[in-house]
């Protein structure tokens, strides 16, 4: 196909299509993903081309989707489950945590669970309750799961294919408010591996870490900081579990300062784990404590308040200032 300009949503759609062409055992399951093409149209047109047995409009029951995916995986299938919105993953939480995550260990490797759980996550779309959440820490805290978050069309296109081909269960987080962001995707390129973080902007003064929808925010902050003569290095973590922090340590050893940004509530969020690890590994290089910018420790607020809740360019820059002030 070569180079195409794609949105994240379209890149996911093409990636799913490619994965289904490559492996007849790949099947999609979810609510409204067939005829409708999903509420975000990520699976648009796939049922028409691959049939109702491979693109399954399920009953409206998230535990049912994940629980039947377990049985299908035992039978040799590779189910890709769409959870319609982040806040609706919790009815499936039992299956994900007690079954999907544990069956490989329980069976001493006899049973694999190559299940991908796609979740449009994060806020900023003016939605009602339960449609704007960031549940990644629950899953990152669960041994047996892997968790990745994409931030751009290139990673969306390749990442979904890599996740489907991977032998372990993966929670695949899609930044719903960035679904319409565009970039050039070279479909003939050799992709980066799935579980690697990536420096997306070089800099010398402060290392800023983000994943999913906050990568764009961090990059915007870096541009604004540059105008003030401050040089931010931005790392797209890409993988939330396992964390790939070697490039982060390398960066922090140069900058001496680190700010972690995510939409999820700060307390016991990914930033807490990252701060601990950066401190353990870069203690003698740090000029300031690792700072966290995230959602407040409240339920996700009604949408008229979400701009106050969500980290934005100014809050990232404020944290950068505080870091530099130490």
């Amino acid at each position: 196909m070569g180079i195409e300009t794609l949105t994240i949503g379209k890149a996911l759609n093409l990636g799913l299509r490619r994965a289904m062409e490559d492996d007849a055992k790949v099947m999609l399951m979810g609510e409204d993903i067939g005829k409708l093409g999903g509420v975000f149209r990520i699976t648009d047109g796939l049922q028409k081309d691959f049939g109702e047995d491979r693109v399954v409009d399920t009953p409206l029951a998230e535990a049912g989707i994940l629980g039947t995916a377990v049985g299908l995986a035992m039978r040799g299938y590779r189910p890709v489950c769409e959870i319609q919105f982040d806040g609706f993953v919790f009815p499936a939480y039992n299956q994900i945590v007690t079954q999907v995550a544990k069956i490989h260990a329980r069976s001493k490797g006899a049973l694999r669970m190559p299940i991908v759980i796609r979740i449009p996550f994060g806020g900023g779309i003016g939605a009602v309750e339960h449609h704007s959440e960031s549940p990644e820490a629950y899953f990152a805290h669960t041994p047996g799961l892997k968790v990745v978050a994409v931030s751009n069309p290139v990673d969306a296109y390749w990442g979904i294919q890599q996740a489907i081909a991977h032998p372990d269960p993966i929670v695949f987080l899609e930044p719903k408010r960035r679904y319409w962001e565009k970039a050039e995707v070279d479909t003939d390129a050799t992709p980066d591996p799935l579980f690697r973080s990536r420096v997306v902007r070089g800099g010398d003064d402060v290392t800023v870490l983000a994943y999913g929808p906050m990568v764009k925010t961090a990059l915007q902050a870096a541009e604004a900081a540059e105008e003030e003569g401050r040089s931010l290095e931005v790392v797209d973590l890409r993988t939330v579990s396992p964390l790939d922090l070697d490039p982060v340590y390398e960066s922090v050893r140069r900058t001496g300062r680190c700010v972690v940004v995510h939409e999820a509530a700060v307390t016991l969020g990914l930033g807490a784990e990252i701060a601990a690890r950066v401190t353990e590994n870069c203690f003698h290089s740090l000029e300031a404590p690792v700072l966290r910018v995230g959602g407040y420790d409240t339920p996700y607020p009604p949408s008229k308040l979400e701009e106050e809740y969500l980290p934005d360019l100014d809050r990232v820059l404020d944290a950068v200032d505080r870091s530099l002030g130490f």
């Binding site: 047995d53 629980g67 377990v70 049985g71 299908l72 035992m74 039978r75 189910p79």
Partner: peptide
Amino acid sequence: SQCLHATGYAMGVQRD
């Protein structure tokens, strides 16, 4: 929990 696994497995049997 296993009732869902059984049902999914049966859906696989069907597809096979």
